Simulated scan of single mutants.
Amino acid sequence: MPKENHLLLKRLSVRVDALRRAMDAVMAGSTPDHAKWGAYKNYARAYNVLAQEYINASGNRDVNMYDTDKMGTWSSTVWPFQKSVFDTIYADTLILSGILVSYDTGTSASISQVQDLLSANLRKAIFNKPEKELDVQNSIEALLVGRGYQKSIDYDRESGKVKFSGKEFIPDFAFPSLKLSLEVKLIKSGGNVSKCIEEMSADIPAYLSVYENVLFCVYDLGEIRDVSEFQHGFQSHGGVRICVVKH
């Protein structure tokens, strides 16, 4: 396989994993079933894009694709059908992720471990609705320490000032050996979604000017309806990952 295709598949592995996490967040959310699965078609489209890129890079067509034109719409279907489609897409996403995992090694795999830690455990570590980002940051640090990460060795907190376009940026967490900055965002209301997007858009070029990787941990109190759509535009940037955790 050409080296450039191997690199494409490595990057694709990260994006497929991001889709899986977005779907995990939907399944773990507390939204009632009649409203929970309405974005099923969006997830099918997102999966199709990734599956087609895999086919193009690998030449292997042994992955499923979906005809979204035959799926109906959220308003013309009932939630059991929507959930059935969602579950099928999720299964195919897991299969594709499993195929690609061998390409996601080294630093990328270590960053995935940090992302998995937050995705799987952050909600469990927060007992009351956080009032400010500091509450989420403290819970993240507790998870890191509990997993064996050592401050000032494996990570630093609020250090490593970055100057970019006349402004100063300080990452919430920095992992020097991974060349990774971790930024925490808390979304409490609808207006916070737009503010969060603006802040992330400013953070990305600033942190990528110093770090090779940026991981956003977005703790959502119920305002993000379509996690995949929220993530998609940002993750088109190389080195950018987004972990959305719903309360």
Rank of each mutant, 00 (worst) to 15 (best):
R21H: 09
M23E: 08
M23T: 09
M23K: 08
D24F: 03
D24L: 01
D24R: 04
A25M: 10
V26F: 04
A28H: 09
A28K: 15
A28T: 09
G29V: 05
G29R: 03
S30C: 04
T31H: 02
T31S: 08
P32M: 00
D33P: 08
D33C: 06
H34Y: 15
H34K: 14
H34Q: 13
W37I: 00
W37S: 01
W37L: 02
G38M: 09
G38L: 07
A39V: 02
A39Y: 11
Y40A: 12
Y40D: 10
Y40H: 14
Y40E: 11
K41P: 00
K41M: 06
K41W: 04
N42F: 03
Y43M: 04
R45I: 13
Y47W: 07
Y47G: 08
N48P: 03
V49Q: 10
V49W: 07
V49D: 12
V49C: 02
L50P: 03
L50S: 05
E53S: 02
E53C: 03
E53D: 10
E53L: 05
Y54M: 03
I55A: 05
I55P: 00
N56R: 12
N56M: 08
N56V: 13
A57F: 07
A57Q: 06
S58D: 03
S58I: 02
S58F: 04
G59S: 06
G59F: 04
G59E: 08
G59M: 05
G59Y: 10
N60L: 12
R61I: 10
D62T: 06
D62W: 10
D62L: 08
V63N: 14
V63Q: 13
V63M: 11
V63F: 10
M65I: 14
M65A: 07
Y66D: 07
Y66T: 04
Y66C: 07
Y66E: 06
D67M: 11
D67N: 15
K70P: 01
K70Q: 09
K70R: 14
M71H: 02
G72Y: 11
G72C: 13
T73G: 08
W74P: 00
S75L: 14
S76G: 11
S76A: 13
T77E: 01
V78P: 01
V78R: 15
W79P: 04
W79V: 00
P80S: 03
P80E: 06
P80L: 02
Q82W: 07
K83V: 09
K83C: 09
S84A: 14
